[in-house]
Design a protein around this nucleic acid. Sequence first.
DNA 1: AGCTGTACCTGCAGGC
DNA 2: TGCCTGCAGGTACAGC
Length: 269
Amino acid sequence: MPELPEVEAVRREVSPWLLQRTITRAKLLDAPQGPKYAGLSLLKDARIEAVNRRGKFIVCPLSNGHELVIHLGMTGVLTRMRPEKHGRVILHLAESEPVFFKDVRRFGRFCVAPGGDRRLLPTLFKMGPEPLSRAFTVSDFAGRLKSNTAIKSWLLTQRPVAGVGNIYADESLWRAGISPFKPARQLSNPEIERLHEAIRDILTDAVSAGGTTIKDFETGAGKQGRYGQALKVYGRAAQPCIECGQPLQRAVLHQRTTVWCARCQESSG
DNA sequence: AGCTGTACCTGCAGGC
DNA sequence: TGCCTGCAGGTACAGC
């Protein structure tokens, strides 16, 4: 599902379910073997000290020094209703209803970072600053754009800034008037400033709106994101650009659908 | 070390 | 009805 605003909506919703609760047991259901569900035995008898977000990850420090790390992938959901299908984990909590992790496509992750060591989570480990924090400055951002990779692809790596995915990358680049194909290191200083501001503004608005509901995204309790009506390019291929009226272009860049305006987002400038 | 392409999954909509 | 194809908000990793 989720990019930063959607994960933040989930975090806010599940915080009261989890905060200061003690995990009596974490039970693996039909979950993939391997690192995506590693270390769940370390959750036993741990108290959840905080429910934080880092980019698209939900990170919960535990009383035993370990960290619960959750990534929703494309289809992950935290819910208090027992899923009929695709349930991956049950989190049994002392004196509280259990919380389920459901994930249709199995791209998600629900694991423990022992001692809070995130080195086995490369994206989390190498992640850029939080876009809505004071650490996300224009000069820091500029320093992280030293790559020959197309700017859109580079944003999706999470390395220049945390939490930007396919929707908000397209929206931010359109707002900033930058071609998604332009190599990151070729952005001019004014372009970097515009992109920095666009990312901050768009994510701020999207968080306020509770995220974007494209198809069936909803948080565990069924809240719908309201940012979909504010989207200017995502999902609007072949429709007129809101700025100039030209039909929006569509292409596949790094296996992801990309929508942009060829007139407003020139490759140069 | 940096970059590209591919792999991992399931479900749904649309064309025939 | 059913089969096929393409598409979906993401990350991890192999190989160059």
